[in-house]
Design a protein around this nucleic acid. Structure first.
Lengths: 242, 242
DNA sequence: GTTTCGATCAAACGATCGTTTGAAGCCTAT
DNA sequence: ATAGGCTTCAAACGATCGTTTGATCGAAAC
């Protein structure tokens, strides 16, 4: 009948072994990637025994998934919750693209604002995971994102009824890709940090710039496609004839 | 005084040990990433001795750089050459954004068209390398891309004189990021391949869709920024007050 | 024919990897 | 106090890694 039923090793809840491992793994996976990060470096940073990872998580891969799911799951749930609320508020009129983008970006920004440490680390880790070739990572992310993406796709489809479904799928894919890649960038963030040392958060600046950029691409008329495509074809033909 | 001074192992030039290693490494690095690819798997796929890699390239890292530079260097040179030619043709008027984008995309498309095998593999590998956390990879790519990016930045600056330099830098970064990420995507490319089994090349389809999308973002007016940013701020404040 | 030098080979080096084992520790309930 | 549970611990397991070594081969130079 005490306060908590979970284990406690040194008397303080938040420093439990499992959480300390997750925190250390989050930072190290972000910094070096999955393959290049050893369990020994994680357990050393977390100041726990080497066997603790396999005991609590089963394997290195399951630890990685636990690191991702700890923050990714709530973030995606918050995204659809925000989208639901916006749709309720705007009902019966369809949502604007701007508000849909806001629902997509704000939960990430909340992580970038960093409740304490770790939020920004996680965003970078997520961006890197999105480009990792490991099959179990790609499978995991596909499952985690599938529902949310489908939900946003129908929302965008209502906001852009003139856009063919296929074209919308591609543009949404570009948006998620640019978002992931932007969050994964290391050099650029550090470069921005040097130029803007006093602004709130680097990830925040980045996302605020990215949102209008992607919004313009999303709302671009279909005319531009054939226009640029024709230019590309011309240049390709010219180079082929060369 | 014979035709070639380079070594030949089995009598045929194109199957020299060095090239066979590069070809095998290109495919395996793309499929599994740098860390997860062993030299033994590479030398086995190339049907050469294990020690051949260290003999010809020095180390695994140098092999990786050799794989990248073999195609990346010519591609970037072709990008600036195309840009130079377009500017000469349009002189004295400034280049349109469309044509600059074409100069950026066409060399990648030429690789996607795949002289024979390997071109598409390399594009995916390049996209993955762009998100790889390994310091030597990031350093290498920065150096390889620096000149070309600067060249295109001034070109875009001339085409968009109203756009602040800082905003342009960000948008160009988004473009390169979306391009890299798009090329790195595995699942989506396979999914597209199932839907469009008869069209020319998957990467080609992807790049043709991506170009108009990015072009719209690049040419987006600055007004949108404050507009969406205001919406984001509103949502963030509401969530903070929650 | 002898020498020479770059290329290839089998084999091993030391290091590090993820994982497992079995004993020891510690808190809870009986 | 005793028994039983999770948890932690030091130590080792087998496997695989990148790299190095020294011998062997083969074609060109003398």
């Amino acid at each position: 009948m005490s306060s908590s039923v979970v284990s406690l090793n040194d008397g303080r809840g938040p420093s439990a072994t499992k959480d300390r491992i997750l925190d250390a793994a989050e930072g190290l996976f972000m910094e070096h990637g999955f393959e290049a990060t050893s369990l020994r470096s994680i357990t050393a940073a977390a100041a726990v025994n080497l066997a603790a990872v396999n005991y609590h998580f089963g394997s290195k891969e399951e630890l990685f998934q636990a690191v991702l799911t700890r923050r990714l799951d709530p973030m995606n749930q918050r995204r659809v919750a925000l989208l639901d609320r916006f749709e309720r508020e705007a009902s019966p009129e369809p949502l604007s693209c701007e508000r849909i983008i806001v629902a997509l970006f704000v939960p990430a920004l909340e992580l970038a604002r960093d409740p304490e440490r770790g939020g920004k680390d996680f965003l970078r880790l997520l961006g890197r995971a999105y480009a990792d070739p490991a099959p179990f990572i790609r499978r995991f992310l596909s499952e985690q994102y599938a529902q949310m993406i489908a939900r946003f796709k129908t929302a965008f489809g209502r906001a852009l009824p003139h856009l063919p479904k296929k074209e919308l799928s591609w543009r949404l894919h570009f948006i998620m890709g640019a978002l992931s890649y932007t969050l994964a960038g290391t050099d650029v963030l550090k470069l921005i940090a040097e130029l803007n040392p006093k602004e709130t958060s680097n990830d925040e600046i980045l996302l605020r710039r990215l949102a209008p950029f992607l919004l313009a691409g999303l709302k671009a008329p279909l005319l531009d496609l054939s226009e640029v495509t024709r230019e590309i074809d011309g240049a390709l033909d010219a180079s082929a004839r060369r």
